[in-house]
């Protein structure tokens, strides 16, 4: 059986004496847009919340950071860094592809599985406590960036 993270965090908060975290529960049927063409003809976007930045960019902080970074899809993998308060960074720092599959995606474009990639991937650091700020501040910015990139589909990778 998969790890029950909601239960795990409920127990943690109780132990710490915090109030219960208000999880987002979307009961409505989600919106649905079938791909209009094969993936091999699509421009794919990438959004990742594992705290990936490029050395020379201002790194994320750990207290509800809602900033969004644009990372060129042709970035040298050796310049990618990982920072996050809530997961073990050991492997992501050895190989960012475990939470930011940049080499994997570039390889699949080379093979013709994916048509092309957007010019930039977008990254942030998850674990933002306020779902309202994510919905009202961050999500519209992500949508705007992806629309400007004219993507056909997007891969979201949390960490």
């Amino acid at each position: 059986m998969p790890v029950e993270y909601i239960e795990r965090i409920r127990e943690k908060y109780e132990t710490l004496g915090y109030g219960a975290y208000q999880w987002v529960f979307n009961a409505d049927t989600p919106p649905w847009h079938p791909l209009s063409k094969p993936l091999s003809e699509c421009r794919l976007g990438l959004v990742a919340s594992g705290g990936i930045y490029v050395s020379r960019q201002v790194a994320f902080h750990y207290r509800d950071d809602t900033s969004l970074l644009a990372i060129p899809m042709d970035v040298p993998t050796s310049e990618l860094r990982a920072t996050h308060f809530a997961y073990d960074l050991t492997d992501a720092r050895q190989d960012p592809n475990v939470v930011f599959p940049i080499d994997t995606l570039r390889g699949l474009v080379g093979e013709g599985v994916i048509g092309s990639l957007a010019a930039n991937a977008y990254t942030f650091m998850g674990g933002i406590y306020s779902s309202r700020r994510v919905q009202e501040e961050m999500a519209p910015r992500v949508t705007e960036c992806l629309s400007a990139e004219e993507v056909d589909a997007v891969l979201f990778v949390p960490a």
């Binding site: 909601i6 987002v24 529960f25 409505d28 492997d91 992501a92 475990v98 599959p101 994997t104």
Partner: peptide, 25 residues
């Protein structure tokens, strides 16, 4: 469980520890 609560249009679940959503290093 968190993804099922958020209920996105499509998802792929990989039963790996956090920090490895797209594989092993």
């Amino acid at each position: 469980d968190i993804t099922q609560a958020v209920n996105p249009p499509r998802a792929a679940f990989l039963d790996y520890p956090l920090g490895h959503t797209t594989g092993k290093p």
